[in-house]
Design a binder for these strands. Structure first.
Lengths: 341, 341
DNA sequence: CTGAAAGCGCTAACAC
DNA sequence: GTGTTAGCGCTTTCAG
């Protein structure tokens, strides 16, 4: 930067002013500085800037795994939203591991990241104190952990699962399997979606049949959807409907059903959750719950950005924690029978 | 850090030594320092460290889009490989846009990233000079651009497409559609895979029928696979096989075929490219080419890491550019007829 | 093995 | 508007 200043015949401060744009600089000087920058092929050293400013313009996104379509698509949305605000995103896949999630929480404290958007999968309500003790802006995704002192952006899991189950019940199905149950009692989305399933059944006076519950403790992947479906079918119980707790499970389940000769939706109707791109092109296309992924991403970035701004102006701090529930939408496709008009 | 030093009764240098682990420190002092770190809840300021060291331990990964399963899964592999070497990854989705790709190339110059793994989609051979002029380690993925002066990690696209096409020809298919042709003449993978398709046909004395070529200029998404398939079928040409240039296109095409009542593989056999997770659970499951995604990720990180090390020891520099071709593997599933024994 | 002092490259204060 | 000075928090000489 000193070289640029020399060449332009100004001080480094003026160069800094031109490049940061914070302080107005007269037209002629500006041109000269930019000319010198071009001549020398100068690029600013971001690290020094961050050190000096105390803000990096980088936010973290901690999610389990990008290969899972839901998170890959979510990450794209977060990255796009962040870019609109001039922020960059460091993605930290935590692989469903407690230690990786804890490690991810420590990164911003080291001052490289200004804040964190965190979708917990291994940490649970018992770890809420860890999250409340953090001294940087944090936005929590999902309903795995709740704290009145932390910003949340999520969706109404219970409602979504109830809607999905109701759709099958309305179609006259009475032997509805639920796929994606986790053995661990604390797991957020699984428990809530199961609750929605149970509530929908209960509203029609139907009890939960254990044989219809498909576990997926190794993660909500397609392979586990197929496996869970297989174990339900192997139990010998009659099945005419499936509520899968995400689309990947649903697609795995549809695969297994069709391999065994069950027609979808005639013999078995299937509903998923997430509305990933696959859902539109599976065979048959998958009826599912659109959880407002884009809205979640945008709001999460927005809340985080607001907290970062508040930090800059300490006297304005103190907005109460946000709890945003994104709108859900039922997307009906060909894996469920068309509704009677 | 000064606080920690004071509390431990040592100098900041000693604290630094303990935390970085570069210089051995006596056991007792170590304990005292670590104790003070714990007491104060101290976390090192990464930014200052980067500024001083001149290396960040961060590498960039520039890919078009994480929502595309191939890139989401690739990103997971790169992140995992990087983590094994103590590196972090900043993902820069470039959205198939030239300007975003150029922007991504400028980030490392600003000294926040030590190097870059770049999968170009919009830049092409005409931009090779830009890549050759960079003053930081760069690893190029794919065969979109080639330079003898840059490290490449890729796969043999032509072979892969030829193998896929041969499989269909061996099964007696003679009206084989190719999906994923781009109008832009430069586009790497598309052109190469098309070449493999053409070579396989030529080897049996079959010419290319224009009506069998499905364009997908809006990207290799499922939706465009369905659309391309539709336009081929609408042309009225007979079709008994499909080579799709990636799995997403193949899955979209299978959807369209089945909606129109074509049985797979009986009426039309389908082969994809990429072996994304979907391919195992589509209906029917998809025969495809596994491009050695994990190998690509590992080798790319490894090459980059080696270049970073070389930088540290300038006298050892000069290893010639690497050109690594990952091994391809044909994965036969249910979208193609079983082979005669 | 440990301490003192210098400086990585930039920007916030403050003067002019 | 622009120049001067100091310092962000760490690691790296260089002594001891």
């Amino acid at each position: 930067m000193a070289d640029v200043a020399r060449r332009a015949g100004v001080s480094t401060k003026t160069v800094s002013n031109v490049l940061s744009g914070n302080v107005p600089v007269s037209g002629a000087t500006r041109e000269r500085v930019l000319g010198a920058v071009d001549d020398l092929g100068y690029e600013i050293n971001v690290t020094a800037r961050i050190l000096r400013r105390g803000r990096s313009g980088l936010i973290g996104l901690a999610v389990p795994e990008l290969g899972q379509p839901y998170f890959g698509e979510l990450a794209d949305e977060v990255l796009a939203a962040a870019r609109r605000h001039g922020l960059h995103v460091l993605i930290e896949p935590t692989g469903f591991a407690r230690e990786h999630e804890l490690a991810a929480l420590r990164v911003p404290r080291r001052r490289l990241l200004d804040g964190l958007i965190f979708s917990p999968a291994a940490l649970d309500q018992g770890d809420v104190a860890v999250l409340e003790g953090l001294d940087y802006p944090l936005v929590l995704l999902g309903e795995q952990i709740f704290s009145p002192r932390v910003d949340h952006v999520t969706m109404h899991n219970v409602d979504g699962a109830r809607t999905a189950t109701d759709l099958l019940l309305d179609a006259g199905r009475r032997h509805i399997a639920a796929l994606g149950i986790l053995s661990a009692p604390t797991a957020g989305a699984s428990r809530l979606r199961f609750q929605g399933y149970r509530e929908a059944l209960a509203a029609r006076g139907i009890g939960v049949d254990e044989r219809l519950l498909g576990r997926a403790d190794e993660g909500w992947h397609r392979a586990n959807g197929a496996r869970a479906m297989a174990s339900v079918l192997d139990s010998g119980v009659a099945v005419d409907g499936v509520v899968a707790f995400n689309d990947a499970l649903a697609i795995g389940a549809m695969h297994e059903l069709q391999v065994r000769g069950h027609a979808i939706p005639r013999d078995v109707a299937v509903v998923g959750f997430d509305d990933i791109e696959d859902a539109r092109f599976s065979v048959p296309s998958l009826t599912t719950i659109d959880p407002g992924r884009r809205e979640v991403a945008q709001v999460a970035v927005d809340v985080l950005r607001r907290r970062l701004d508040e930090r800059e102006t300490p006297h304005l701090t103190g907005t109460p924690p946000v709890r945003h529930l994104a709108a859900l939408r039922l997307v009906e496709r060909d894996s469920t029978p068309p509704r009677r008009a």
